[in-house]
Structures are given as structure tokens and as C-alpha cells.
Design a protein around this nucleic acid. Sequence first.
DNA 1: AAAAAAT
Length: 464
Amino acid sequence: MTTFNDFGLHADINRALAAKDYTTPTPIQMQAIPELMKGRDLCGIAQTGTGKTAAFSLPSIHHLLTYPHARPPRGCRMLVLSPTRELAAQIAQSCRDYGRFTKLTVSTVFGGVPINKQIRDLSGGVDILVATPGRLLDLIDQRALRLDDVEIFVLDEADQMMDMGFIHSLRRVAKLLPSRRQNLFFSATMPKEIAGLADQFLNDPVTVSVTPQATTVEKIRQYSTFVEQKEKQALLHSVVASEDIDRALIFTRTKHGADRVVRHLAGAGIKAMAIHGNKSQSQRTNALQQFRSGDIKLLVATDIAARGIDVSGVSHVINFEIPNVPEQYVHRIGRTARAGAEGKAISFIAPDERPYMKDIERVTRSKSEPMPLPENFNELVRNLPKPVAGPKDTGSQGRDPNRQRQDANRGRNGGKPGGDRGPRREGAAGAAGEGAEGQRKRFFRPRNKSVGAHKGAVTRVGGR
DNA sequence: AAAAAAT
């Protein structure tokens, strides 16, 4: 049987693994680590929880140690991009753990927190940088960071990074990377568009897949209940009371919805916190930290927490509202039953959500078990405690009519999703010289066929 | 259609 020691990783890494009591690699680690140590590009189809972070960070740290190199001032040797701040923080923490017996430096940069410390951290250069796209570009624009020295580039949750609003940043980042580098690309699902992108982006990649396309994790028992939207809150209270919950993640479709659920729970004397993109970064960090520590057992979240967030002991995922993208369901319920544990997913399905659930069952090729409403449900609905007042209800209302900056960003993406309308619109950046070649659709440098794929094979770009 | 990500 393969153990971590068999990979021939740097001794300092093995020491860290031993300290963590890690001996047996997961399937993705088994497949990916040897190839990555050869310097190959990698296309990984995997969710977090499959051991993905270690799969890419261990061989990368090995590379950084084996080919020592002075830290490039204001640069980094390895760059990891993540779609959410929480995930970035989590990845950075893993890298620190694995590199704890080395002198490698790990930094993380994302928005919502002061930038000055990040600028200072970067000034002398770092070995590993984990970032979200917005702040990364901000730092680059401020000349606090450059990407010329990146040897390893990791794109995590690539399918989410392809979304509108991310893709522009991603293209910019890609252009700033040196052409010779190792690319690692991870995506939980691999729909056609992503596969196409991966193809442009990776150079003769090894493909590893540990979850068959968007299928539901086996260990999770899935239940669903048909319930009117208005009565979901009562059902939630009943579920919280009757289920043996260690930790539960409750997903809503909107940020507002998440807050409302928390206020209702509070009204019934049930402690819970919300996490979503309208909360300040400190509130977000705090909520996640309290959920991790067990101070709160219920975390109500938008899909900000659907991916990647790795909290052990999540016994239940409750879909208070059904996601309308089936893949998102897979991500959500993947927050439970992690690392061999068992888990339960319970979905509340309002009449108008039935089609979504159908879609989900088709995509996951699984069917959830019906969970009946409790006997005394009508009574529960009638006696539902009032929610505690929200911030809006408490104090001065609408004393803020100058709220018209919402649309400030609108102009940029112009909202035309698939719109290939005209080659012009490179938006804000203005006519940035940019090659005229038909590279509208090329998010990344075209894949260079130049054989070899070996370390030495210098890939050239732009020479056409 | 919503959410995320820069201020």
C-alpha cells in the first residue's frame, strides 16, 4: 500500500505529515502527487474534502524546497487563486501546516481587510501566495505585487472562477503570468466550457478525477420534504428540535433570506449566525470561527459557503431553499459527511421549487427519501414565534436616499452574458494595446503544442 | 437569477 513516505517528498514535508498523523494518501493525492512532482500540468476534477489541497500543495512545496530560489521582491513563486476569501484563508492555513518545518513563507491576500499589512507582507516577496482575484489585481495595480516569478499557478474551483465577474480578472491575471510555469487546475465539475478553458490553459495535462461528474457523495443520506415556502421556518424549527445535530449548515438562496432565517431562529431562542457577502469580513470570519469551534451549531449561509469550506463535524446540511443550479446542490451537501464521517442532507421543497429538485435528481442520478412533516406541524406553524427585529426595523429608516452608487459597477460587465457583440468592449481598461489577434475567446494563452512537456520545454507565447 | 469579488 502506498504511504506518503513512498512519494519521495522532501523530508521536512514528511515530518509535517507525520506530525499530523497523515499516513495514507487519498485517491486524488495518489494520482496527482507523482505527476506533479515531475512538473506536469494537472487538470483535477475534485471537490475539497477529497484531499485536494494537500494534493497540490505537497508536491508544490516539494518543488519550492528542491529548487531553492531567492524570494522575488514583491513577487511570489507559487500563486493560488480562490473564489472566496474564506477558502483562500483555509488553503493558506493548510500550506502553512504542511510547510511548518520549512522556511517557506505563505501569505494570503483578499478584500474586506486593510491592504497595508498585505503590502508590507509582500514587499520582500513570498514563496506561496493565496489570493482572491479582486485584491490581487488591486495589489498589482498599486505595484505592490508582480507575477513575473510565478513558477506554479493553481486555479481552484475553476468552474466558479469562470463565472461572469471573475473571468475578466482571471484573464488579466493570466496575461501577467510568465509563460513558463506549471499549471494546476481544479474544478468540481467539468462541463464543456470549462474543459475548453482547461484545454487552452494547460500544457499536456494529466487529468485526474475523483468524483464522477456531479454525482452525489454516497455517504450522505438525502431527505426532502414538500412544504409551502411560508411554512419553511416552522419546519426548520421542528427539524432543529428533532434531529440530532452536531453542526448544521443551513443554505438559503439570498443574503436577505439568510438574515431572516437567523432572526426567526433567534425569536425562538435558537442560536445561529449568518454568513454571506453583505456581512463585513470580520463578521464573516467570526461566524465561521464560532461555527468551527462549536460555539454555534447552526450557520445560515448563502452559496458563499457552498464550496470548499471544510468544517469537520457538520452532521446536517439543510437546504432551506433549493439552488437553481443543480451542481450547487452537490457542492452544498458536500459540506457534510467529510473525511469518512456520515451526514444528512435535508431539502425543503416549495411547490415552485419542484422543477429544480427534478433537475438535481437527474444530474446527481439519485433520489432523496421523502421526510414527512411532523404530526403537529399545523400547530407549529400557528405558534411560530415572531422573529427578532432586524436592523431596519429598529432605528431610523431610510435616512439614506443617496444610495445610487449601486450601479457604479454595472457598466463594466454590461450584463450581456454570452454576448459576443463586437470585438470592442474591453471596457474600463481602455484600449490597452492588446493584441488584435482573434483572441476574444482566448482567456489564456493558447496551448502551445511544442512537444516535450518536460521541464525544459520552454513554451513561447505570442510569436505568431 | 443570485452570489462572489476591489474600494
